[in-house]
Nucleic acid binder design. Structure first.
Lengths: 118, 118
DNA sequence: CAGTATCCGAGTAGATACTG
DNA sequence: CAGTATCTACTCGGATACTG
């Protein structure tokens, strides 16, 4: 047996771990949709996102936003109006998800055609 | 990095639905990793995947494989040996996930560097 | 406006044991 | 080898009500 065959599976394990890492960050029913909404509008407030993301509850939105912030994908900015306004925005790191979001969108459309068509 | 282009909000709603569709298909702790394993080896047996995907139980693997098959991402082929051998393979439709898997892998590595480095 | 608090059912997932 | 069966704990997520 060639040594590359020993090396490749090992490399593959690392790749699979990387995929898992990403999926852990994006887990939850709403995360990608929330990111997509913030990305689309650049800046977005809590209640706006609540309207954008069809079906989400304020409890879940609050929770998902916190997790996204912990993972440094979004920032939360308090603006000193009365009452206070909160702006959510993508970080530079968060913006690097753009390609993935686009791919997921494209694939979703294709999948729908495939499943309905069959 | 790119910014989100100006679509009409109505168009954006459809895009978000498409993302949701994809995430619904890929939901579950192990699906992407399983696909990644099958993809890497082209053909893969049940117990092989069980070894590839670190931490998964046979119950979960069985369940996830069924769902992937229902969504027409993989095929299950029974080969008449003794005892029988089962081959799992990606369908053509399943193979279209390749780009997404690669992107998720790349992003996972970048994210790890980002989080550990901060 | 931007969230919290609480209750609860449904689904997810692990451990272990068993089957053809 | 390729799964099922069962039991159990944990988490997800919805509904409703409440706060500064």
């Amino acid at each position: 047996m060639m040594e590359c065959e020993e090396f490749k599976p090992d490399q593959h394990k690392k790749e699979m771990m990387a995929v898992q890492d990403t999926m852990d960050v994006l887990r939850g029913k709403w995360k990608i949709t929330i990111l997509s909404s913030i990305c689309f509008y650049n800046k977005r407030r809590f209640s706006d996102i609540l309207n954008d993301v069809h079906g989400i509850s304020n409890k879940m939105l609050s929770k998902e936003l916190k997790e996204l912030e912990i993972n440094q994908l979004i920032t939360r900015t308090v603006i000193d109006t009365h009452p206070v306004t909160i702006h959510y925005q993508l970080t530079e790191h968060g913006k690097t998800l753009r390609t993935i979001i686009d791919n997921l969108t494209e694939w979703g459309k294709r999948h729908r055609r495939k499943i309905i068509g069959s």
